[in-house]
């Protein structure tokens, strides 16, 4: 990503061309993390990812689900970054089976919903307006 030319406009196409055929992490607006090889993109930053896995993180654990080829509509991408192949195995996280991480993910979601409900109730009792519902905040 070092082809920044002073005076030139920053464009997605100029910055993505160096990432083609590299392993990328893509984060979507819905919070999903996809890891795959970037094969193609266009002026909208629509992406083609090959050999993609979806990685779910809960605490210090993660689980991978093989997903194959993705055509991602650019507007749903929050960020993407190249993965350093030399360092990717050094992360202090433990991999767990898919079934396990899905259970952990559901528990985390339910715990968050319970907290949110409790918080809204407390605020409501204090006379605050609680009609704000959390969206994806983007």
């Amino acid at each position: 990503m070092d082809n920044f030319v002073p005076g030139a406009f920053f464009t997605t196409s100029a910055s993505l061309v160096d990432s083609v055929d590299r392993k990328l992490l893509v984060v979507l607006r819905d919070g999903r993390k996809l890891i795959g090889v970037l094969r193609s993109f266009d002026q909208f930053a629509n992406l083609v990812l090959q050999d993609t896995i979806e990685r779910i993180y809960v605490g210090d654990a993660y689980g991978d689900i093989p997903r194959g080829i993705f055509i991602i509509r650019g507007e749903n991408v929050v960020l993407l970054g190249e993965i350093d192949l030399d360092k990717e195995d050094e992360v202090p996280l433990r991999q767990v089976p898919v079934e396990e991480i899905l259970i952990a993910q559901r528990e985390e979601m339910e715990a968050r919903q319970r907290r949110e409900k409790l918080k809204n109730k407390l605020l409501h009792d204090q006379g605050f307006s609680v009609d704000f519902t959390e969206t994806d905040l983007y």
């Binding site: 979507l28 819905d30 194959g68 080829i69 993705f70 055509i71 509509r73 749903n76």
Partner: peptide, 9 residues
């Protein structure tokens, strides 16, 4: 309205 598409390998 599309988020993404998945196609066969």
């Amino acid at each position: 309205t599309i988020k993404y598409l998945r196609v066969p390998d």
